[in-house]
Simulated assay, not measured.
Amino acid sequence: MIHPKLKEAIQKYSEELTSLRRQLHSEPEVAWEEFKTTTFVCQYLENLGIPYRRTVPTGVIAEIKGGHAGKTVALRADMDALPVEELNKDLVYASKEEGKMHACGHDAHTAMLLIAAKALNDIKEELTGTVRLLFQPAEEVAQGAKEMVKQGAMQGVDNIFGIHIWSQMPTNKISCQPGPSFAAGDWFKITFKGKGGHGAMPHTCIDAAVVASAFVMNVQTIVSRTIDAQSPAVVTVGKMDVGTRFNVIAETAVIEGTIRCFYPETREHIETQLHHYVESIAQMYGATATIEYTHGSQAVINDEWSAKLVQQVAAEAFGEEALYAEKPTMGGEDFSFYLSEASGSFALVGSGNPEKDTEWAHHHGKFNIDEDALVTGAELYAQYAWAYLKH
């Protein structure tokens, strides 16, 4: 199932792997601004003699063609950072960019895939088929994968595999369960318009703060009272902007939030109900309302055969004790757009280690990874591609 030369090569390149990750971490670029990162990846691939092409405006698609004809398996790594201030100021590789940070592990994903590519390139004459490498921009805004697909990333691909470093799992544990893994993620912006006026004369006004508050208090019943309890869903209001002064009745209130769920019918139902609640509550208070609803990533649903292959590869490469059954998360992942084009799966590689202070939540300013997990992730990428093509 696994190739011993891949294991040996990735162990040999382990120091380089850490170095690559640290360089990427110190030079973060947010969504659609990954120009230096794209050039960095291209130069690395060029030095290996791996043909590639840039996507627009950022991103890279590359291929390692095997010595024997066969299918095509794609491996994906995302590259973008977040608009988050790094709080780990004592790290020698801390972010050099104020207000920007790799707070989700995409620096690790990119470094792991580069080293996996190097190891696979070493044995390319033994490969039965082609390994396509996708270095994707703009995952954090749920747009990069869709754009990569538009630019041909999945043409001719039979199967796709991706990895996410996961701080909520112990270092080097691997989880890839069949079925739902990451939720669909949408977001909304609602503007309630009332009638402003003096705080001493509320009877002459329509208080947008009251309207917005009524919506926030009632919207949770969409989940608690209109959805099957066995179909998980989350509606979160994360931002409310209302009012201008302590003694002025607010004329306008703007609310922003997100919706997470696993099943298309649940997603459609929540969107319909959200519009109904907005319109009804506005009408009840004599206000008006507009709603902007944006569909983000779809749910990541792991193909059963592919997920079981990941488990087999992981058990053989790292031992049965490496396998871990992580529950599905309500976090979003635009890897889902690739799974609309081909079968595949998405694995989690644990990087949480309390002794190294790497259990912080993703997107937190103190997020960091246990770099021991890098070798595991790089080998899992490479061994999965080898195993899939052998099948």
Rank of each mutant, 00 (worst) to 15 (best):
V254C: 01
A299Q: 03
K189F: 01
A289N: 07
P202K: 11
A317D: 11
P264S: 08
V248N: 06
K189H: 09
I206W: 07
I222N: 01
A253E: 03
V237N: 01
A208N: 08
N302T: 12
Q273D: 03
V216C: 04
T236R: 00
Y293P: 08
T244W: 04
A322R: 13
V211P: 08
A253I: 15
D228S: 13
S224G: 12
M201V: 10
T191R: 15
N218R: 15
T226F: 05
V216W: 05
I227N: 06
Y324I: 12
G296I: 09
H198V: 09
V242M: 01
Q220Y: 07
A209P: 12
A307S: 12
G194A: 11
A287N: 03
F318P: 09
G286F: 07
Q230F: 04
T266F: 05
Y263Q: 12
Q273P: 07
A209T: 14
A289Q: 05
G243M: 12
H275Q: 15
A209M: 08
V216S: 05
Y293I: 00
E304Y: 05
Q273S: 11
T204M: 11
I301P: 03
T204K: 11
E256Q: 15
V223S: 04
N218L: 11
K239P: 01
A287G: 04
T221V: 05
Y277Q: 09
T294C: 12
T204L: 14
F318N: 15
G196P: 09
V278A: 10
H198P: 09
I255W: 06
I227R: 02
F262D: 00
T226D: 05
S213T: 14
T288R: 00
A233F: 10
I270K: 07
G319E: 05
T226Q: 01
V235M: 09
H198R: 10
I227C: 05
